[in-house]
Design a protein around this nucleic acid. Structure first.
Length: 420
RNA sequence: GCGGGUGUGGCGAAGGGGUUAUCGCGCCUGGUUGUGGCCCAGGAGAUCGUGGGUUCAAUUCCCACCACUCGCCCCA
């Protein structure tokens, strides 16, 4: 029988990994609260149509990333490949427009994309996601950006900066896209097959091309930032002004064009080292996608950050999170009556908040073996309950460091254990 | 979808056409009638990824497949 193995691209998160996870998640919760974001959870599956309409079928993301979709009698359902569309659905469905605006939400959970896995990229990964809904103030853009930046800073990342761009809006983008198309059309011959296809379907994406032959052509390409309408231009300037005041380093990168169709105005990424060939730990921007999924116009801004990638970066930088604390006591016994007493004592200690393990054994088990287990588990004390001790109402307490062991009345045990 | 790399006890590795497949870590037992770490002795644990081919003989050579992994693309 071949052992059954994990599905490709999916991970087990083992106990030793959890100290990293807890470190990151605790900081995420803490910052979210500090910035006034409230937690939202949504289902990991939605109707396929939500993503189809929300993400946009011309988006590379939608076209190339296979989603995990199940055909059901009532229509196709899909494991979420991102959070934003589901958040918008939840906003509309739960009538959040009647709440005090803006609504600030954060989410933590798994995301599924059927890509070929590699370092820093998985088919199931987890994101920490923050969204501000119902607000078009550029200060909101800056707030989510700073939340992300401070998350990484407080975790211990160094040398962080934003890659920033504006993708304009429905008013100014079409005119720019035509200019870009005209410009690029001169070089059709030199474009690769995918870039040629993009030129017709979504010319903006050519700016993001990794094709080394195409990159030189982009040197003199028109920049969207120079063709923004007044509203978008002001917005872009305001964001930059605030980032400067906050001493947040950023680089304007006209090639940042994100993969989802719904972005407008601000788009940004935060790059990090040490996550394989991947570089973005965080991507986000401003959008207005409620109309696509059947709601009224609603501005939003937010980011998603890959938790696995944050952790890879931490490891690369040699940042050590605190260890998960272990129980401090292990109770050893000699079976029979003494085991029953050990089990009882363990529950009493736990009631008092003292982390306790009991040595398990179906039959006889040597004290040596129990001591070895206690040593491996790094408990601070072994409490020994033998026949004699039980009869006399005593316990032997054996500190696992250099201190001598002592025999105590049962009643004095807690005082001894909590003394230091 | 396309390329590269790797598959040998639980984990990490070495090896090599033929006899009992090696080492380290981990695990178990004993040395200590009821006392861990260090040391010593012993022990359990492997269809050498799967299938086929070559050969008197394959875990070793060849082919295919599968899995894992890294990269392209794209993304968190």
């Amino acid at each position: 029988m071949n052992p059954i193995k994990r599905i490709q691209g999916m991970q087990d998160i083992l106990p030793e990994e959890w100290r990293y996870w807890n470190y990151v998640l605790d900081k995420g919760h803490e910052l979210a609260r500090l910035y006034g974001f409230e937690r939202l959870d949504i289902p990991i599956m939605e109707k396929h149509e939500l993503f189809e309409r929300g993400i946009g079928t011309t988006a590379d993301f939608f076209v190339q990333k296979e989603m995990y979709t199940i055909e059901e009698k009532k229509g196709a359902i899909t494991l979420r490949p991102e959070f934003t569309a589901g958040v918008m659905r939840a906003y509309i469905q739960n009538g959040m427009s009647s709440w005090t605006q803006p609504v600030k939400l954060y989410l933590i959970g798994p995301i599924f994309r059927r890509e070929r896995p590699q370092a820093g990229r998985f088919r199931q990964h987890h994101q920490f996601n923050c969204e501000i809904l119902g607000e078009d103030d550029p200060a909101a853009d800056v707030e989510v950006m700073m939340l992300a930046l401070n998350l990484y800073r407080e975790l211990g990342y160094k040398g962080l900066s934003f890659q920033l761009n504006s993708t304009g809006c429905k008013t100014c983008r079409p005119a720019y896209v035509e200019k870009l198309r005209d410009y690029l059309s001169q070089y059709v011959e030199q474009l690769g097959a995918t870039d040629q296809e993009r030129l017709t379907k979504n010319p903006l994406r050519v700016l993001d091309s990794k094709d080394k032959n195409v990159q030189p052509l982009l040197e003199d390409a028109p920049h969207l930032a120079d063709h923004l309408c007044e509203d978008c231009a002001t917005h872009f300037t305001d964001v930059q002004t605030m980032l400067q005041v906050l001493d947040a380093p950023y680089t304007i990168n006209f090639r940042i064009v994100r993969g989802m169709d719904y972005y407008e105005k601000t788009v940004f990424e935060v790059l990090a080292q040490g996550i394989g060939a991947q570089s973005a730990v965080c991507g986000g921007g401003r959008y207005n996608l409620a109309p696509e999924i059947g709601g009224s116009s609603l501005p939003g801004v937010g980011f998603g950050s890959g938790i696995e990638r944050i952790i890879l970066g931490l490891k690369e930088a040699g940042i050590e999170p605190p260890a998960v604390p272990q129980p401090t006591v292990m109770i050893a016994h000699f079976g029979g009556e003494t085991k029953v007493a050990a089990v009882k004592l363990a529950f009493e200690l736990r009631q008092l908040g003292i982390g306790t393990r009991v040595a398990f054994a179906r039959g006889k088990r040597s004290l040596k073996s129990q001591m070895r287990e206690a040593n491996n588990r790094e408990v601070s004390y072994v409490v020994l309950l033998g026949e004699d001790e039980l009869a006399r109402g005593e316990v032997v307490v054996r500190p696992m460091d250099d201190r001598p062991q002592t025999t105590l009345p049962y009643a004095d045990l807690v005082a001894y254990l909590t003394a230091d």
